[in-house]
Design a protein around this nucleic acid. Structure first.
Lengths: 206, 206
DNA sequence: ATATATAATGACAGTGACTGTCAATTTAAA
DNA sequence: TTTAAATTGACAGTCACTGTCATTATATAT
């Protein structure tokens, strides 16, 4: 490839402008969505507000949805998960990784995430794209878990474990959507704590 | 509403024609998808093959996706679930309901379901719509479970239970997609049996 | 500093799903 | 047979998204 930047800030003028345009598009997009609604806002309007041509929009984001959904949470999660000690169980490791992932975000990132998540839950188009992403994340978790346990990638129990986690995340999102006052990270941890105790299946009166 | 038909077959000419058109659209659609691919097949072509106008298509199906995804599995599941005796646990009841639901299908329906599911898994557009439906089903399961346990509709543990089930179903679908030789109903039961034993969380080396 | 390669952009012309309206036709009910 | 209602098709329009091409901006080599 190219000589990777060994240090962070070492970008040419080109890269810098591109990053600026990206941010502008996302900010203007979110502003317009807030103001006029997601469906009512056209890509032409976002492009105009960002002072680029409509065609250029698609060189930055493959779809209108990506403007809202793009994030690098997965990478953070992977990193955190891999760092977890071997002594603890899968769920414990996953719970800890999630906690660390959230903790590593700035206040601003957390606010943005919350707003984008709320929008995602209320726009079917976005919810669909988000769920596809969760589907992919399921496979990712299965991979991480299999590696950790030294089991094959398509181990059935491992797949079910990953499914359990993603199902929990779906339920957490729905819960948070219905209870906007509760903190997403807290609810997530609460859910994972529940699973850590092995609860919501045959025990506890269920 | 209107005087509900107390017996099955009691449809006017109108209803009969509509049902026939629906079936024709689905059959011709699936045939064209099989032959030319989902994306490559336009609604105009489906309409022409079904001998109706393109505008009429949307009076039968709200979207192109609905042509593939429409089913009444949920109703069957609800019915079966409600009939389960009170003595067994949630999972046991759910597992039994799922089993009965599958058993109640004709061979033809099972074949059709399998084909539509395979198509769904391989077309992002369809997968997205299918996942949205699963999201809704999660809420439905939560409702059923809450009723059964006499708990509030938004009980946190109940939501997590429902999430667990739907996560398992996601994992089952992915597994079946990667192992086309295995039977979907069998894999589903295998997964639920696993949960019935309370496995894939803290126990069994996970 | 100048020339040259490369990357980014904008203008343009499409495609196809989906929406809305309206008049014509078909079926059901009186 | 008349009347009301449902179904349909034709049509025009919107918008996300794709592909192509010439133009412009940036980076690199001389």
């Amino acid at each position: 490839m190219s000589p990777e930047n060994p240090e962070p800030a070492k970008l040419g003028l080109r890269e810098k402008k591109k990053m600026k345009t990206r941010r502008t598009l996302q900010q203007q997009g979110m502003r317009l969505f807030r103001e006029y609604g997601y469906a009512a806002t056209t890509i032409e309007q976002i492009a105009e507000a960002s002072e680029i041509s409509p065609s250029t929009f698609f060189r930055y984001f493959p779809t209108k949805e990506a403007l809202v959904l793009e994030d690098n949470d997965d990478e953070l999660l992977i990193e955190s998960f891999r760092k977890q000690p071997a002594g603890i169980s899968l769920i414990q490791a996953f719970r800890a990784a999630a906690k660390e992932g959230f903790a590593g975000m700035t206040r601003e990132e957390q606010t943005s995430l919350a707003e984008r998540m709320a929008l995602t839950m209320s726009v079917p188009e976005l919810r669909a794209a988000s769920l596809i992403h969760m589907n992919d994340t399921l496979l990712l978790i299965a991979e991480l878990a299999a590696d950790r346990l030294d089991r094959p990638r398509d181990d059935f129990e491992v797949m079910m474990f990953a499914g359990t986690i993603m199902g929990a995340m779906m339920a957490v999102q729905l819960h948070c959507f219905e209870h906007p006052d509760e903190d997403f990270t807290a609810v997530t941890d609460r859910a994972l704590a529940l699973y850590e105790k092995g609860v919501p299946l045959g025990t506890a009166g269920l």
